[in-house]
Lab assay of single mutants.
Amino acid sequence: RYTFRTRGPEQMKRVVEWARRQNLSYRVEVHGDEYIIHAE
């Protein structure tokens, strides 16, 4: 189980790509310009 905090969509997309390659399920929360990605 991982939690990532990123700023801006570019970093968020990179984390999502990584999670997909690992076959993890993930969800993204948006708080202003901060993205929180939960993957497991």
Rank of each mutant, 00 (worst) to 15 (best):
V16L: 12
E34P: 00
K13N: 10
K13F: 10
R5T: 10
E40A: 12
E40L: 09
R14F: 09
Q22F: 11
R21N: 10
R1Y: 11
M12V: 09
L24D: 00
S25G: 05
I37T: 00
W18I: 02
L24N: 01
P9A: 14
E17S: 07
F4N: 00
S25A: 11
K13L: 14
I37G: 00
R27I: 13
K13G: 06
R20I: 15
F4H: 02
E10Y: 07
V30N: 07
W18L: 02
V30Q: 14
R14N: 07
Q11S: 11
E29K: 04
A39H: 02
R7S: 10
T6N: 01
N23P: 01
E29A: 04
A39I: 15
R7C: 09
E17Q: 10
R7V: 10
R7I: 09
V30A: 09
V30E: 08
R20H: 07
M12A: 10
G8C: 13
G8W: 15
H31N: 12
Y26M: 04
L24M: 14
F4Y: 05
Q22E: 09
E10I: 08
G8I: 15
M12H: 02
E17H: 05
Y35C: 04
R20Q: 13
Y26I: 14
M12L: 11
T6Q: 02
F4E: 00
G32F: 06
H38N: 05
R14G: 04
S25H: 13
S25Q: 12
T6I: 14
V15F: 12
P9R: 14
W18T: 01
Y35W: 10
A39L: 15
M12I: 05
R14I: 13
A39N: 00
N23V: 03
G8V: 15
R27T: 14
E40H: 13
Q11F: 06
A39T: 13
L24A: 02
E10S: 08
W18V: 01
M12W: 06
V28S: 01
E40K: 08
P9V: 15
T6W: 02
I36V: 12
S25Y: 12
E29D: 06
F4Q: 00
R7N: 11
H38F: 14
A19T: 03
L24H: 03
E29S: 06
V15L: 10
R27A: 07
V30T: 09
D33K: 07
Q11P: 04
A39P: 01
R21V: 07
D33F: 07
T3S: 06
N23F: 07
Q11K: 07
G32C: 04
R20Y: 05
E10V: 07
R14L: 13
R21L: 12
E10L: 08
K13I: 11
D33N: 12
Y35K: 02
T3I: 14
R27H: 12
R1L: 08
D33E: 11
A39W: 11
P9I: 15
I37Q: 00
G8L: 15
V30K: 14
H38G: 01
V30H: 10
T3N: 03
G32P: 04
T3R: 07
V16G: 01
V16S: 02
P9W: 15
P9Q: 13
V15K: 01
H38Y: 15
V16C: 05
R5V: 14
Y35E: 01
Y35A: 05
W18E: 02
E29Q: 07
W18M: 02
R20M: 13
Y26D: 00
P9S: 13
E29C: 08
R5N: 05
G32Q: 06
G8P: 01
H38T: 14
R21F: 06
R7E: 07
I36H: 04
E34Q: 09
I36T: 06
Y2Q: 04
R14W: 09
A39M: 14
Y2P: 02
T6F: 09
D33Q: 08
I36D: 01
K13V: 08
R5K: 10
H31S: 11
Y2T: 04
R21H: 08
Y2I: 09
H38Q: 06
R1W: 11
V16T: 06
H31A: 10
H31I: 14
V28K: 00
V16E: 04
E34H: 11
Y35L: 04
K13H: 12
E17W: 06
F4P: 00
E34A: 07
D33A: 08
E10R: 07
M12F: 11
Y2L: 09
E29F: 12
K13R: 13
V28N: 00
I36Q: 02
I37F: 04
E29M: 08
Y26L: 08
V30Y: 10
Q11H: 10
V16I: 14
Y35M: 05
E34L: 14
G8T: 15
V30P: 05
G32W: 04
R1G: 11
E10H: 08
Q22H: 15
T6S: 04
P9Y: 15
T6E: 03
G32N: 08
V16Q: 03
G8N: 15
E40R: 09
I37N: 00
V16R: 02
R14K: 13
E29V: 10
H38I: 14
S25T: 13
A19H: 02
I37M: 03
N23W: 04
L24C: 04
V16W: 02
H31L: 12
T6G: 06
E17T: 06
R5S: 05
Q22N: 15
N23Q: 10
R20L: 13
A39F: 14
Y26F: 12
R5Y: 13
K13M: 13
Y2K: 03
T6H: 02
F4K: 01
F4I: 12
R20E: 13
E29N: 04
R27E: 09
P9K: 15
R7D: 07
R7F: 11
Q22K: 11
E40W: 15
Y35F: 12
W18D: 01
Q11N: 13
L24V: 03
E10D: 11
R20P: 00
G8E: 15
R21W: 06
S25F: 13
G8K: 15
E17A: 11
R20D: 06
V15E: 00
D33I: 05
D33P: 05
I36N: 01
E17N: 07
V28Q: 01
D33V: 07
R5W: 10
D33C: 04
K13T: 09
R1T: 12
Q11A: 14
F4D: 00
K13C: 09
H38M: 09
R14P: 02
Y35R: 03
Y2V: 06
E10T: 08
E29R: 04
I37S: 00
R27N: 08
I36R: 03
R5E: 03
Y2E: 02
G32Y: 05
A19P: 00
Y35I: 07
D33R: 07
R27G: 03
V16P: 00
Q22T: 06
T3H: 06
N23A: 06
N23C: 06
V16A: 03
G32M: 06
E17F: 05
T6M: 07
T6C: 15
I36L: 08
Q11V: 09
E40V: 11
R27F: 12
I36M: 04
V16D: 02
G8Q: 15
A39S: 03
G32D: 09
R7Q: 10
Q11M: 13
E17V: 04
R20N: 09
Y26R: 00
A19R: 00
R21T: 11
G8D: 15
R1M: 10
Y35H: 04
D33W: 06
R1N: 09
E40G: 13
H31F: 12
L24P: 01
V15G: 01
V16F: 04
R21M: 11
G32K: 05
R20A: 09
R1I: 11
L24S: 01
I37A: 00
E34F: 14
R14A: 13
R7P: 05
Y2S: 03
Y35T: 04
R20W: 05
T3M: 10
G32H: 05
P9N: 10
T3Q: 07
E29W: 10
R21S: 14
I36F: 07
A19G: 00
A39R: 01
V28L: 06
R21D: 08
R21P: 00
G32I: 04
S25P: 05
W18K: 01
F4L: 04
